[in-house]
């Protein structure tokens, strides 16, 4: 259950972004997750609902964008879709490939509410 530790790191970053932008509340957090990051999205979401309590993101929505696993072959040079436990080239089958996408764990975007927008929202 390292998702809770990851969630706490996420909330620290979100709090920094809110502070830098003089925001009092966070409306939405967008995270990009690749399957090879080792993070399970349902577990991250559950951990988030616990970890956000008492933080600037208490009422925030967490939205996750799942990224595909893609590799580029060093032998034939082509890109192909892959699976987490089968990262060989989809064209020639060689295992000398490089990951182009799939191991990301990124805080992509935070939507902040400032005092005046809070007032607007009420």
């Amino acid at each position: 259950m390292h998702e809770l530790a990851i969630c706490q790191a996420l909330l620290e970053q979100v709090a920094d972004v809110a502070r830098e932008n003089d925001a009092q509340r966070v409306a939405r957090i967008e995270v990009h997750v690749g399957p090879l990051s080792g993070v399970e999205v349902p577990l991250l979401e559950r951990a988030f609902s616990i970890a956000r309590a008492g933080t600037v993101a208490e009422e925030a929505r967490l939205e996750t964008v799942s990224l595909p696993v893609r590799v580029r072959c060093e032998q034939c040079g082509q890109e192909s879709e892959a699976r987490v436990n089968r990262l060989v080239c989809g064209h020639c089958g060689d295992y000398h490939t490089r990951l182009c996408s799939g191991d990301e764990l990124i805080l992509a975007r935070v939507e902040l509410l400032r005092e005046e927008s809070v007032a607007l929202a009420v």
């Binding site: 990851i6 932008n21 805080l107 929202a121």
Partner: peptide, 20 residues
């Protein structure tokens, strides 16, 4: 700092979650 439809300020971050 694009505005969303709901009036929130959107900030693109693009940091690794495990940056710390």
């Amino acid at each position: 700092l694009e505005r969303t439809a709901g009036g929130a300020v959107a900030v693109d971050v693009l940091h690794g979650l495990l940056a710390e």
